[in-house]
């Protein structure tokens, strides 16, 4: 009985994720949001000319590896919380709470959507870069393997964290403002678009606490030639440390996300939904 129940949740979740991915592909506005990231990365890569200081690796490759990491980071920490906050406000979470097996299916669907979006944009970026601006691709099976595990672990580090953030943020309008500032700060300070070593040491140390720096470093190790590690702060790729930091964030994310999501789902009720809609109407948000 329990087994068939789990299978039902999985089936509903996969169906839901598939439908939502298809909706994303059908929605020009949202799709262009993801595609513009790729376009910006390609444009920047096409215009930076120099080599990474102290190496013979083109700067464009460091930038593309950095943007690849940022894409994963953004899907987990910007796109996912926004989806969660929006769907909470619309009442989707409440409806699924009122449906048997709805919440597990919802989480499965969101994982599928986030992984699909992240892997899709990442693949598009790397392929388009390779074709259009002579971008980097992994060298040999080892490089592909690194790309795979850094992507997977990077998503594990940011997706639960993003879910936790989405569970506590007040509403979609404030959510974007609250998330974008720190995310942009990390984009600049994590060595994604220019070498970390050109930043003051205290800034490097702060950025090293957050996952983006390590995701970018891991992807550089997968995409750039081994000689490029001369430009790294430690003079090496520090892959064990990349794995350790990302794992730590993944664990922290899960520890936060499970109770916070449970709390968010438990707090949903019709009257709270009505109250939120009333507040949204007062603040001048257009009804959806």
């Amino acid at each position: 009985m329990r087994g068939t129940h789990m299978k039902g949740c999985l089936r509903a979740g996969l169906q839901r994720g598939g439908i939502e991915l298809r909706q994303l592909l059908r929605n020009p506005k949202e799709l262009s949001g993801h595609l513009s990231n790729v376009a910006v990365a390609l444009a920047v890569a096409a215009f930076v000319g120099d080599d990474v200081p102290g190496t013979r690796t083109p700067m464009a490759h460091l930038v593309l590896a950095g943007f690849a990491a940022y894409l994963l980071f953004q899907v987990g920490l910007v796109t996912l919380p926004q989806i969660l906050v929006t769907e909470r406000e619309e009442g989707a979470l409440l409806r699924l709470r009122a449906t048997p097996g709805g919440i597990p299916a919802y989480l499965i669907a969101k994982c599928l959507l986030v992984v699909g979006t992240a892997v899709g944009t990442l693949a598009l970026l790397l392929l388009a870069a390779a074709v259009l601006v002579d971008g980097p691709l992994p060298h040999g099976p080892g490089g592909w393997l690194t790309l795979l595990w850094v992507t997977a672990l990077g998503l594990l580090a940011v997706v639960p964290l993003g879910a936790a953030i989405g569970a506590v943020l007040p509403n979609p309008r404030e959510a974007l403002a609250l998330i974008m500032l720190p995310v942009m700060g990390l984009l600049v300070t994590s060595g994604t678009v220019f070498p970390l070593t050109s930043l003051p040491v205290p800034v490097q140390q702060v950025a090293s606490v957050f996952p983006l720096k390590w995701m970018a470093q891991g992807l550089r190790s997968a995409l750039l030639p081994d000689s490029a590690r001369a430009a790294e702060a430690a003079g090496s790729w520090e892959l064990p440390l990349v794995a350790a930091v990302l794992t730590a964030w993944a664990v922290l994310g899960f520890l936060l996300a499970v109770p916070l999501l449970r709390r968010a789902a438990r707090r949903e009720s019709g009257s709270r939904l009505t109250a939120r809609h009333r507040k949204a109407a007062q603040s001048g948000a257009a009804p959806s």
């Binding site: 929605n27 619309e90 409806r95 449906t99 019709g270 939904l273 009505t274 809609h277 009804p287 959806s288």
Partner: peptide
């Protein structure tokens, strides 16, 4: 839950 149905005032979910 499966034996209960709900129709609330404020649902505007799944718009797409």
């Amino acid at each position: 839950r499966g034996r209960i149905g709900l129709v609330l005032q404020s649902w505007r979910d799944h718009p797409r």
